[in-house]
Design a binder for these strands. Structure first.
Length: 944
RNA sequence: GGACGGUUGGCGCAGCGGUAGCGCGUCUCCCUGACACGGAGAAGGUCACAGGUUCGAUCCCUGUACCGUCCACCA
């Protein structure tokens, strides 16, 4: 396949006698026409291009068809190893992409992030950097295990326990090999220029080595210990899960007010709880020490209803006297706060809800019941005893396990931890951000990071899952697993046997938190701990671009491990991209079902359109609103698609007119005004784009490109080129070719497929650039074409042109007559006569013109269009137009008068502002008097 | 509860101290030899609200309201 193959004619059949607008509306809902349906052969195309036969110029369809062009161009890049990166003498630029879950599918957040990374990567590559963008996927312990468990449950009616650990893990690997690379191919569809030969997976053999090496050091240096903490227990997985895997849902619940009788029979104390079933495990009631109401009852005991246990009433600062009744029941085993209070007061911990979320033997009569069933029974039994004071409706957050859907059960558990606060690892990670070695973009995230790091808590690193990196620690079978001293570090069983001097040993059943492995990503993917070449060259990497929600979980931990193991920061810049929200401004999520599938958008409009739509919003904002796909349409991407089509067609126009033109590598030296002007605008745009990319304001770069290409280049320059070609002016071709070629380079990082396709078809491009692909061409920088004089002079041509068009359109005049312009600078006008005449379809006459003509005063001279005959309707239209102009002028004059009438304005405002205001004032007065006079003429009968 | 962000024409966004801009949508005209996924015009905004600073505020400061994101153990 070569890029030329995309040339096909596409044109809807002509339907005689039907209004165009109607047909357009009728067509609006239809899918884009597929090429190759033979319209050309049936004579529907308006224009025939030279076909085949060794012609130099490609045939291009009248519409850009991304579907096949993108696949073709991507295949071409791959075939030519364009994304491959190996160390050389150039400056490196490296991004290790945030590895998505192997189970994952591309979502809008990914699409945005990959657009950012690939755009910046392509830009840097064109600037001459040695760019490596290293892709990979994450084994994603819980997520993947959940998917495979679900699959075997559905297909084989088995649980993972039926299979056993080894067989189950085998199944997960099989699943990963078969389905795990879906997201990789989706990234490729976006156009990602990543080095796919280096694709990494967090459970690759070499990656496991990295994990072992890291674990060993942390273990021997005393970072890793066994401790007991309150953890988030997922009854669904029978495992600890991390905070990020929790989905806190606001729910309407109840607050039960329970009467707890004093043991001495002196009445009762009322406690409020949202979880009455935990009362079976209560070992105290706490009140605030400052709470006067309860001063007297401190030291009393309570006989716990239904259980009969005697428990104390004690004082603790944690209790807020203002909440509920000011008295709190304490269940140390089942509530994080109560756990802390229990430790403070040395309370017994009684487990009444087991790991499977069923009531334990300690629950007495309720043993074996599900926790929610137990709740109902307990409440009913308490009510029967008259111990329920009242039940209040209560809205609160309930934590759910986002993978299994079970309500999280907090419980103390013996887990492996990694020490954080106060350690060298954490301190250096704070320092490296504080001293500015690592930059955060947008900057506001810097403070967030520092604040979090300064209050960091120890990191629970063990999980009771089967899929993941099994902890490389072993013990003798009969040793106590909760004693740290029972364990030794060993990579292999043999090593462990030697260390423990026994064949009767076991490896820990636990698996490492997935974030433990992704924390090593920037260096483990570059060959550490074995090979140094890539690491020495590409590390520290240049950019880490990611979502704000994993700032702590991932970004902070990469900094820590990078500092500790490599002795260097893992990256220079951290860019936190915006969160993509739905049309109502809510986060897109699976549970809300408000997500948009980026692949659907690519199918609909092409990857480049999606990229541009995202790029134009990718700045320093915290969020981006994205509208849903409705009836096969998505506004934002459609607009971007239209832009892509505009680029396509403008390029097509240029190529059609370049027959016989021999481009050269030399930069043009413009002489005519319009050439000087467009080159000046190009130079400005080049600066804006480089600036935008360099400062992570890709939105600014995108807007600059859009405006330049559509407004300046297409609407003015290309239009102005037409009469020049008609007049045989060959000088236009050099500039036209040059501007288009440079524009394609500028646009390439954001719209890679489209621009490469066009560039491949642009004659002379490869020779001039000295490379075979646009993605390898030099990115434009510092073009010497800034020309303020040209921009100012061209403004005259534009304003006169607009004035003539405006009078013509508003008064609905026939084109083709004469347009008189009393120009302030007749030479400029004369020099651009052909252009103005072509753009307006009026013959330009420089001079005053008939006094009764249609009048439009401008800063560059009055424009008058003669009015040969006039109907009353036309007269009314003109009067209306002038009156509305006058009304606007009056409004504006009011503003200026107010300012000029104030003496302190002239005194205190800068002189330039005062002068400018006076000039504007004078111009408005002049315009006003001219229009008033004209209006007067219209109102006197003689004018007709 | 804390932190952060937003509030500009019907919609999506720019502008961030000198009389409000773009695209879509709406209305009018137009297939004019690149493009109707287009061209030329038009209508449409007291820039959330209240104070303050300033000659002057959409823009700076303070507060309020609403929307939202992230973080967080208040029963």
């Amino acid at each position: 396949m070569s890029p030329g193959d995309v040339g096909l004619f596409v044109r809807p059949p002509r339907e005689q006698g039907v209004k165009w607008r109607k047909r357009r509306k009728a067509r609006a809902g239809l899918p884009n026409l597929q090429p190759g349906t033979g319209f050309a052969a049936e004579g529907y195309c308006r224009r025939r291009f030279p076909t085949g036969g060794g012609k130099r110029y490609m045939e291009l369809a009248t519409r850009y068809e991304p579907q096949e062009a993108e696949a073709a161009i991507y295949a071409l890049w791959l075939a030519n190893h364009c994304f491959k990166a190996t160390p050389d003498s150039r400056t490196p630029y490296c991004i290790t992409i945030p590895p998505p879950n192997v189970t994952g599918a591309l979502h809008m957040g990914h699409a945005l992030n990959h657009t950012v990374m690939d755009t910046l990567g392509r830009w840097k590559r064109m600037l001459g950097f040695n760019v490596l963008i290293l892709p990979g996927t994450d084994h994603a312990g819980i997520a993947t295990q959940a998917v495979v468990e679900k699959k075997i449950r559905a297909e084989e009616k088995k649980t993972r326990h039926d299979l056993g650990r080894e067989a189950f893990v085998e199944k997960v690997w099989e699943w990963k090999e078969e389905y795990g690379n879906k997201i990789v191919s989706q990234m490729q569809r976006l156009g990602a220029s990543y080095d796919w030969d280096r694709l990494r997976f967090t459970m690759d053999e070499s990656y496991v080595e990295a994990i072992h090496t890291v674990f060993e050091k942390l273990y021997t240096d005393g970072y890793i210990y066994i401790g007991e903490r309150m953890v988030n227990w997922s009854p669904g997985f029978q495992s600890v899960i991390s905070d990020i895997e929790i989905d806190n849902r606001e729910e309407d619940g109840s607050l039960w007010h329970l009467r707890y009788p004093y043991s001495d029979g002196s009445g009762h104390i009322i406690v409020a709880t949202s979880r009455p079933e935990t009362m079976l495990g209560d070992t105290a009631v706490a009140v605030s020490p400052k709470d006067e109401r309860y001063k007297a009852v401190l030291g009393k005991t309570i006989t716990l209803p239904l259980v009969g246990r005697e428990i104390p009433v004690l004082a603790d600062d944690f209790v807020d006297p203002a909440f509920g009744t000011g008295a709190v029941k304490i269940t140390p085993f089942h509530d994080p706060n109560d756990y802390e209070m229990g430790n403070r007061h040395g309370l017994e911990r009684i487990e009444v809800i087991g790991p499977d979320a069923k009531m334990t033997a300690h629950a007495g009569a309720y043993a074996g019941l599900d926790r929610f069933e137990a709740r109902k029974r307990i409440v009913a039994d308490l009510e029967a005893l008259g111990l329920v004071e009242k039940i209040e409706p209560y809205r609160h957050a309930v934590p759910y396990c986002d993978r299994s859907g079970a309500v999280i059960e907090p419980r103390p558990s013996s887990q492996w931890f990694c020490k954080m606060g106060g350690t060298e690892m954490v301190n250096t990670s704070i320092e490296v951000v504080r001293d500015g070695s690592i930059r955060f973009l947008p900057e506001r995230y810097r403070e967030l990071y520092l604040r979090w790091m300064e209050n960091i808590r120890d990191w629970p690193i063990s999980r009771q899952l089967w899929w993941g990196h099994r902890l490389p620690v072993w013990r003798k079978t009969d040793a106590n697993p909760e004693e740290a001293s029972s364990w030794v570090f060993a990579r292999t069983k043999a090593e462990a046997e030697a260390k423990l001097a026994s064949p009767d040993i076991l490896q820990s059943d636990d698996v490492l938190d997935t974030w433990f492995s992704s924390a090593l990503w920037p260096f483990a993917t570059l060959g550490w701990p074995h090979t140094e070449a890539d690491l020495n060259y590409y590390y520290p990497t240049s950019l880490l671009s990611t979502a704000q929600e994993i700032l702590y979980l991932w970004v902070a931990r990469m900094i820590m491990t990078g500092e500790l193991f490599i002795g260097k920061k893992p990256f220079d810049d951290v860019y936190i991209h915006a969160t993509v929200l739905d049309e109502h401004g809510r986060r897109m999520s699976k549970s809300k079902g408000n997500g948009i599938d980026p692949v659907e958008l690519i199918d609909l409009y092409g990857a480049d359109a999606l990229r541009f739509a995202l790029a134009r919003e990718a700045g320093q904002r915290q969020d981006i609103r994205f509208k849903p796909v409705k009836a096969g349409k998505q506004e934002q991407v459609e607009q971007a698609r239209n832009f892509a089509n505009k680029i396509w067609n403008a390029s097509r126009f240029v190529m059609m007119n370049l027959e016989g033109f021999e481009p050269s590598a030399a930069a043009p030296t413009p002489t005519t005004l319009v050439d000087r002007w467009i080159l000046s605008r190009l130079a400005t745009t080049v600066d804006a784009v480089n600036e935008g990319f360099a400062t992570y304001n890709i939105d600014d770069a995108s807007r600059a490109l859009y405006e330049f290409f559509w407004s300046d280049f297409c609407d003015w320059y290309v239009e102005a080129a037409k009469p020049r070609f008609a007049a045989g002016d060959e000088s236009a071709k050099t500039v036209l070719w040059f501007v288009l070629e440079r524009a394609l380079r500028l646009l390439h990082p954001i719209l890679p497929h489209l621009t490469e396709t066009l560039w491949q078809a642009l004659p002379g491009a490869k020779e001039a650039a000295g490379c075979d692909f646009l993605m390898q061409a030099a990115f434009p920088q510092d073009l010497p074409y800034r020309d303020e004089a040209a921009e100012a002079e061209w403004e005259m041509v534009q304003e006169i042109t607009v004035a003539i068009r405006n009078v013509q359109a508003v008064n609905n005049l026939k084109k083709g007559g004469e347009a008189f312009v009393a120009a302030t600078n007749p030479d400029v006008l004369e020099g651009n006569r052909a252009i103005i005449e072509f753009l307006t379809r009026f013959t330009l006459v420089i001079g005053d013109g008939p006094s009764d003509g249609y009048l439009q005063p401008t800063r560059f001279g009055d424009v008058r269009l003669p009015r040969p005959e006039v109907t009353p309707e036309e007269l009314a239209t003109e009067k209306l137009r002038i009156e509305s102009d006058l009304a606007k002028i009056e409004l504006d004059l009011g503003v200026l008068n107010k300012r000029l009438d104030d003496p302190s304005f002239a005194e205190r405002a800068p002189e330039a502002v005062v002068t400018k205001t006076r000039t504007q004032h004078a111009e408005l007065l002049d315009k006003q008097s001219k229009l008033t006079e004209r209006l007067g003429q219209l109102s006197t009968p003689s004018a007709q």
